[in-house]
Design a protein around this nucleic acid. Sequence first.
RNA 1: GGAGCUAUGGCACAAUCUGGUACUGCAACGGACUCGAAAUCCGUCGAGCCGCUUUUGGCGGUGUGCGGGUUCAAAUCCCGCUAGCUCCUCCA
Length: 436
Amino acid sequence: MLDIKYLRKNTDEAIRRLQDRGVASEKLTELLSLDEARRAAIRTVENLKADRNIASDKIAYAKRNKEDASEAIAAMQAVSSEIKALDSKQVELDEQVQDLAAHLPNLAAPEVPVGPDESANIEQRVWEPAEYQNRPHALLESPKWLKAHFDVGEALGILDFERGAKVSGARFLYYVGDGARLERAVYNFMLDEHRQEGYTEMITPIVVNDSAMFGTGQYPKFQDDAYRVEGLDQTYIPTAEVPLTNYYAGETIPAQDLPIKFTALSPSFRKEAGSAGKDTRGLIRLHQFNKVEMVKFTKPEQSYNELEKMTVNAENILQKLGLPYHVIMLSTGDMGFSAAKTYDLEVWMPQQNMYREISSVSNTEDFQARRMHITFRDDSGKLQLVHTLNGSGLAVGRTVAAILENYQNEDGTVTIPDVLRPYLGGQEKLIATPHH
RNA sequence: GGAGCUAUGGCACAAUCUGGUACUGCAACGGACUCGAAAUCCGUCGAGCCGCUUUUGGCGGUGUGCGGGUUCAAAUCCCGCUAGCUCCUCCA
C-alpha cells in the first residue's frame, strides 16, 4: 500500500511514477477525489459527534440529579440518526478509497529502468564456474546427445510426470528414488547455507488466511492465480514469503532486533493462470514446487544494502553448485506488484540455450509493512514502518532441472555437484536404477 | 465436531447483574528531597489509527478481542464471529 499522504502532497510525481508501473493517471485522480470527499465527510460527522458527546454528558448529569432531560433526548434523537446516515456514507467512501489504494502497485526505486516489460531489464553481472568452458555443453554448438532436463530425468527414472498427471493433473509430478533424494539434498544444502549466513530457519503454515495474502500484496488483485480452499478464508501459499513476512503482522519489533532474517523451505502452489502452453514439460512451471525462501525485516536506511546482501546469498548457492547464471535488474514493467526494486537470478539451461529465472530478490520498502502494520520505534521514540525484503534462495525444482541439464554426461548419467555429495551419502553420479 | 468459561492500557486487575467521566496497583516518565543513589513524597500516563491545525505542539473523533444491532448514550443489553483455556469426542 502506498502512503496516501505522499500521494496527496506529491500528486504530479506520483502520477508519473505510477505511469512507469503501467497505471493510468485516472486511477490516482479518482482515488484522490474520493479521498477528498471522504475527508469532508469525516469533518462533518465529527463535528456532530463532538456535539453529541457534550449533550450526552449533560443528559447524564441531569439524570443523576433526577432532573427531566426529555427535551435534550428528543433533540439528540434527530442528531443521532443524522450521524448514523453520515457514518455509513463515510464508511462507504472509506471502502472505495481502500479498494482503489489496495490495487495500486508499489513505486519503483529511482535507479530501476523504466520500460514496458522484460525487454527493458538490465543485466548486472554474469558468472560461470572456472572450469565451465571444459564442459561439453558449454560449446557454442551443443553436442547432439545433450538432452532437456526432463528427458534426462525420465531416462534415469527419477522424474515421473505421467503419473503426476494421472493422480493430480497437468503440471504435477512425482520425484522417484534418487530424484527425491536429489531434491532433498538440494534444499537441505540451501537451508544449511542460509542458516550459516544468519537466517533463522522456520517451518511455516502452508495455508494462510486472506488477511495474510493481503498483507504481502497477493490479494486482492491476484486471487485468480491462488489455490483458495473452497468455503474457507484460507489459501495454499504461493510462496513462503507470505507466512514468513506476516509473522510480525500487526506488531512493533524492538529496534535492536533489526535486521531480522528468516529462511524456510515450503511447497508453493500456483494456478499459473495465463500460462497455458508455456513450459508445459518439465520442472520449470508447476502447480506445486518446493522453494527455499529468504525474508528480512530492516530499518528503512538499511534495506537497500540488505537487498544486495540477500542477492549475494542467493548467488552463493548457484556458485557453490557450479551453475552458470546472470543477475538482472527488472524494469518497472517486469517487477512484481509489491516490489520497489527486484533482482532476478537466471540460471543457464544449456539444452534450451537460454537463461531461466531461478530466483527473484526484492525490496518492497514499506509497501507490505503498511498493509501489515509492522513497525519499530526509531531513536526518537517514534513509530516507523519497517522495510521488508524477500528472495528465493532458490527455487528447488528449477535448481534440480539446472543440475540435470548442466551436469549430464554423454552416457546418460548425471554427475552430482561436489557440495551435494555429503547430502547423498557420498554418491558421485545419478545412474539409471530400477525401482518399484 | 459437542459443552462450558474467558477476552478491558506495557503487565495485573475493577466496573458488566442494575447502560451515563473505565477503578486501583505495578511498570514507565517528569519533579522534590540527596554529594549521588535507594526509599519516600508530588505530578503525568489509552497504545494505535483518523480529521483539523498557527506542527518539538494543540483541538476533536475513534478506541474495553472482531463485526453488527438496540439506545439520546454501550465495557455493560442483544445477535454473529475469532482466539485462548477446561472437559467430552476424534486423531499423527
